[in-house]
Design a binder for these strands. Structure first.
Length: 195
DNA sequence: CTCTCGATGTTCT
DNA sequence: GAACATCGAGAGG
């Protein structure tokens, strides 16, 4: 069953944790790819020096200031896309970064998109975007519409244990934000990006 | 397995 | 002009 907007209009830490085990669905060229979310990170507001919105309202960050349930896709390091989902209320800039997924169906297409096999298909934020053919054209896309890109409940999910840690790749942030345990992942899942 | 380093272009100063 | 929510190749153990 599709996840609706009220799920995302919530405390970002809760949404980040609750997204674990959910299914991400991507449709393009009449093909459907699905995967289970196994790792996320929360980026919360102007006071979070790791969050892009700490810079204030700019062309890049305006999506985060908008309605929950929108995709925030941005480009870094000159070659990688990152997929986030906007949370909280309008004018509170926050989002959850999807850092890793476990393929459920359409593996053959993902392998082709990535040109690798095994866990390297999708055990990282840029890798899963490449596997699912997500780029900047999906920035601002409403993921509650149930087209192109949306999320669903996982009916057959097995039980799992949730672990947390500081966020990855934010050396530029203040110490208090670097240390905040705002990364969530499914313990022992092989697709989690790092230990 | 580990570590180091280069790629590459958008964004904001 | 600097920095960047990363990845993969290559060298070494």
């Amino acid at each position: 069953m599709k996840i609706n907007r009220t799920f995302y209009q919530n405390n970002t830490l809760q949404v980040a944790e609750n997204l674990l085990g959910k299914i991400i669905v991507r449709e393009y060229n009449k093909q459907r790819l699905t995967a289970m979310i196994v790792e996320t990170e929360a980026y919360i507001g102007k006071d979070d020096s790791a969050c892009h919105a700490a810079k204030g309202l700019t062309q890049r960050t305006e999506i985060m200031f908008g309605e929950a349930g929108m995709a925030y896709v941005y480009f870094v390091y000159g070659m990688h896309y990152m997929l986030n989902i906007v949370t909280e209320e309008i004018n509170f800039p926050a989002a959850v970064l999807i850092r890793a997924v476990e393929p459920l169906s359409g593996d053959d297409v993902m392998i082709n998109n990535r040109n690798v096999r095994g866990k390297n298909i999708s055990n990282g934020p840029a890798k899963l975007c490449q596997a699912l053919n997500i780029d900047k054209s999906l920035n601002g896309w409403d993921i509650t519409k149930g087209e192109k890109l949306w999320l669903e409940e996982h009916e057959a999910v097995s039980t799992f244990e949730i672990a947390h840690s500081p966020r990855v790749g934010i050396d530029y942030a203040k110490e208090i934000d670097r240390k905040a345990p705002w990364r969530f992942y499914i313990k022992n899942n092989p697709y989690v990006s790092k230990k």
